[in-house]
């Protein structure tokens, strides 16, 4: 802070020095060589009516004096070293200005700079806090991301395990259904075979019984019928004995 004040003081000193050095001589204040010449020309015209009137041999002395004055005008004032009174006035003004600035400007600037420094420090603190917070948030996000990745991996793993389980169930079910189909097919085959055997037996029975019926009918004359009735009666009677 002190260095800043020093730099400000140096800046004001430099300004004052430049002011002093840029001061011009009092004689030259508001008067340039051109202006001087112009004024001299105006004076000659006032005195003689015209500058050309000085060319008259009668005004030879006046012409010499005029040329002397012009030569005087042509002598340039010092551009670096001001007049003493200018230095006094300029220095006084500078001191007044410097004092005023020291009295009012410096504290204001110092307060502003102090406030700015505090603001910057606060901003730095806030930035630090924000950075810390951002770091925390980043860490949280990274943790969440890691958790999410782990969860995603777990989900994928669970899905894979579930898929394996479902595939195993499907395979088991397919095997079971296949076994059932085979059992049904075997049962159907056995049933068809049994039915075919039964049908064949039925056909054979029909043929045999039909043949027997034909034989019996051809031999069932009245005597045979009576003999069958008698045999029935004897059988009933015998069963009672």
């Amino acid at each position: 802070m002190t260095a800043t004040i020093r730099r400000l003081a140096g800046a004001f000193g430099l300004i004052g020095a430049l002011t002093v050095l840029s001061a011009v001589p009092a004689s030259a204040v508001g008067e340039t060589p051109g202006t001087c010449i112009f004024e001299k020309v105006l004076e000659a015209e006032n005195d003689y009516g015209s500058v050309h009137a000085l060319e008259d041999p009668a005004n030879k002395d006046a012409l010499a004096a005029f040329e002397q004055e012009l030569d005087t005008c042509e002598e340039a004032p010092s551009l670096i070293i001001p007049e003493i009174d200018e230095i006094i006035w300029g220095g006084g003004a500078f001191l007044i200005l410097f004092g005023f600035m020291w009295w009012k400007g410096f504290p204001a600037v110092q307060g502003a700079m102090q406030a700015r420094s505090e603001k910057i420090a606060a901003d730095l603190d806030a930035a630090e806090s924000a950075k810390t917070q951002a770091t925390t948030v980043l860490a949280d996000h990274e943790a969440q991301l890691a958790g999410a990745k782990a969860e995603a991996a777990q989900i994928v793993e669970d899905a894979r395990a579930q898929a394996d389980l479902v595939a195993a169930e499907i395979a088991a079910r397919a095997n079971e259904e296949m076994a059932q189909m085979r059992a049904r097919a075997a049962a159907d085959i056995e049933s068809a075979r049994s039915q075919a055997v039964s049908d064949l037996r039925g056909v054979v029975a029909d043929i045999a019984v039909g043949a027997a019926e034909r034989v019996i009918k051809s031999n069932l004359d009245i005597d045979t019928q009576r003999a069958l009735v008698d045999a029935y009666i004897d059988e009933v009677a015998a069963s009672n004995a």
């Binding site: 039964s198 037996r201 039925g202 029975a205 029909d206 019984v209 027997a212 069932l220 069958l228 029935y232």
Partner: peptide
Amino acid sequence: GSVRHRQSQLRENFG
């Protein structure tokens, strides 16, 4: 004790 019954039994025995 009919012949028809005997035939039925015969048919059943074949079956």
